[in-house]
Each structure stands twice: as C-alpha cells, then as structure tokens.
Write a protein that binds this DNA or RNA. Structure first.
Length: 392
DNA sequence: TTAGGGTTAG
C-alpha cells in the first residue's frame, strides 16, 4: 500500500499522464480515500481530470456504498463541464440495480435518453440483472427480447444474466428454455453459462441433471473451471453425497484446477452437515499445509458444528485460536454457536456465549432469541419486565 | 498500457 502511495505521489509530482491509471488502481484496491486525495492534488497541480478519471472514482465510491460522495462527485463533474457518457451512466445504473433500486435505475436510463446517450448492451444486461434481483423476471425477459428492435444484439452475457435470474427465482424450466435458445441465436456457450445452469439445476434439487450438464461441457469445447467444480461440489455436498464430492476434488486436482478456500469451505460445511465433524476438523487443520488460511466463515462453520456436537471446550479453544490468528469472530459466529448449543439444550453454555457476544458489542439474531425464549419457557421461566424478579 | 456487464460455500 505504501509503495502504491509513493508511486502515486511520484506520478502526480511529475505530472505523468498515468495518473488516471493510478486512481483507478487505488479504487480497485479499496483505497478510494487515497484516490480522492490524489484527485484533489491533480486539480491543485492544474491537471484536469477527464471523464475516465471521474468514472473510475465514481465506480469506487458506488462499490463501497459511499452514495453521498458519489452524488457530490457528479455535481463536481457537472461544475467542471465534464459530460457523462454511456459508461458513466452505466456505473450509476449498475449501482442502483445492485441495491435493488430498479425504478431509480430506470430513471437514470430515462435521463440518458433525454441527453441523447443511447443505452448499450451493457446497460440492458445490467437492467436484466437488476430486474432479476428483485424477482421481476418477466420484465427482464421483455427487456432482452426488446434489444434487437433497438439495434442491439444480446450477447452471451445477456443470456447468462437472465438464465441466472430465472434460476435465482426458482424458474429453472424457464432458465433451461433460455439455455437451449443460446445456439439457436448464433451464440456460443461460455463456461459461465454452464456454471449458472448447473448451479440452477443443483439448486432446484435436480442433482442428476446438474451432473449430466457438467459432463456435457466438453461437447462445446468448454473446460470446467474452479467455479464449475465449486458449484458441483456444493451441489453434491448439499445432497449429502460427500464421497462423490471428494471424488470430484481429486478429479479437479488431476485436471490442474487448484481448490481454493471456497472449495474447502464447501467440503467442510458438507461434512459438518452430514455430522462428520471430526473429518471436517481434520480437513480444516490441514488447510495451512495447503497454503490456505481459514477465514471467519470457515471458523464459524467448524466452531458452530463443535457447539452443536456438544464439544464446548474444543469450540472455545478454537475461538481463542481464531482470534489469535487475527480472525475476529463476528455476530454470525456467535449466533451460530449459540444456536448449536441451544439445539443440544446446553442453556448455561449458551448463556456464556451470549454474554461474550454482548461484551463484544453484538446482538443475538431473531432465531437465537426465539430459541432462548422457548427453552426458558420449558424450564418454567418467563419473560418479564425489569421491575419483577420472581422466576425471571 | 486510461473507466463499464455474467457464475460458487457460510
């Protein structure tokens, strides 16, 4: 990070034309604040930022939900007589769609058209994603179908977006129909198209169909990638087909696809769900040897499962280990642990975790609260206000 | 080598 700052300062002081590239890199490296400082310095030095510089920062701000600053930046662009182009508008359409604000995204498109900036394929694909996210798949389909009439040829990404939209909204048959349309429209399948459809089939519980489609990839000269295998492994694990999942783990390694932390997360989660916590724990312990560092989610899965197994001391040890490794437990970690303990009716242990959770500034979720109240009621306790003390 | 779109666990 320090090196990047030094480089950035060097660029500015020498007035290199590469400053926009630095700003873009800073935004992509989550250092939007530094990018903004750099922008201010550029202006001070008399270097006028162009539409590319502003767009880079705008995307950075939108990606991190810094809406107020994004709005201020647009005002600044207008003040500096920088005209927004289709890419800049698409950044805004994308930001609204990702937040599920499709009406606002539609308004942005309306403004674009009023300014004679025609929406392009990316605009439409983004909107298809947006409609899908809020469950408006019929609207997404209509939009896709309207593209040729507007002189735009839907790309494979357009199809991928709607296939994904259908799958995420439980409309696998519609997704399958669209999947079959791809070659008829003169488009080539992409590995993402297959990944999306395989995921959709597994998600709908159609494990055999998902597996069949996976095996069909080579007929289109497509090579399964890491995401393909992760989808496949997850589908199998959710169906408790753990042995088959491990077979595919070996196949992917043989094919030169290196499993990542997600792969092991899927397998560990699958093992825990199948009540094979000991094997899961061993696999978890082997991760550092594979050059992989467990993350919060992975710790949560293991510690939560240990709680559910009643192995409270081991869970506590792992919680300490987790913190020592620089991985701070979050509210999900505590909630999952408490849920596990309550499932085993370990009320006092659950209370200890709850106390610790509150000390850390987290709150129990609705499931934990409801489980707690049920178990307290079973014990003849009742919820009451702070004034009364009997059996409360 | 100046900015934009699609897929995976919890």
């Amino acid at each position: 990070m320090k090196k990047m700052r030094v480089f950035a300062m060097a660029v500015i002081s020498r007035g290199f034309a590469a400053n926009t590239r630095v700003i873009d890199s800073l935004c992509k490296d989550r250092m939007v604040g530094d990018a903004l400082q750099l922008l201010a310095k550029m202006i001070d030095k008399g270097i006028s930022p162009d539409i590319v510089t502003y767009s880079s920062i705008l995307r950075g701000l939108c990606n991190f939900g810094r809406w107020k600053e994004a709005k201020d930046l647009i005002t600044k662009m207008v003040d500096h007589k920088i005209s927004l182009n289709v890419i800049t508008f698409n950044i805004l359409v994308d930001a609204f769609c990702k937040e599920g604000l499709v009406k606002e995204a539609e308004d942005v498109v309306e403004i674009m058209m009023q300014r004679n900036i025609l929406p392009d394929v990316v605009t439409y694909n983004t909107l298809v994603d947006g409609y899908s996210l809020v469950g408006q798949t019929d609207k997404a389909r209509k939009l896709l179908d309207s593209m040729p009439g507007k002189g735009l040829k839907p790309s494979i990404i357009s199809y991928n977006s709607l296939i994904n939209g259908y799958c995420k909204n439980g409309k696998v048959e519609e997704a399958w129909g669209l999947f079959l349309e791809v070659p008829r429209k003169g488009l080539d399948y992409h590995v993402v198209t297959y990944n999306t459809m395989v995921q959709g089939l597994f998600g709908a519980g159609r494990c055999a169909d998902g597996l069949k489609l996976f095996k069909d990839m080579h007929t289109h000269q497509l090579i399964p990638d890491l995401v393909t295998y992760n989808i496949l492994l997850n589908g199998l694990c959710m169906k408790k087909q753990i042995d088959e999942a491990f077979c595919f783990l070996h196949i992917m390694e043989e094919q030169g696809v290196n499993p990542d932390i997600t792969t092991y997360g899927i397998l560990i989660h699958g093992l825990c769900k199948d009540e094979k916590v000991e094997i899961a724990r061993n696999l978890f312990n082997s991760l550092p040897c594979k050059g992989l560092r467990p993350n919060v989610q992975l710790y949560t899965i293991i510690i939560g499962s240990l709680c559910q197994e009643g192995q409270v001391e081991e869970a506590k040890c792992l919680l300490v280990e987790m913190e020592k490794s620089g991985c701070a437990p979050n509210s999900v970690t505590y909630n999952v642990c408490i849920q596990g303990l309550l499932k085993r009716k370990l009320l006092s242990e659950a209370k200890a975790f709850l106390d610790e959770m509150c000390r850390q500034g987290f709150s129990p979720d609705a499931t934990v609260v409801s489980m707690l109240l049920d178990q307290l009621q079973d014990k003849g306790w009742r919820y009451c206000s702070s004034e009364s003390t009997d059996n409360c």
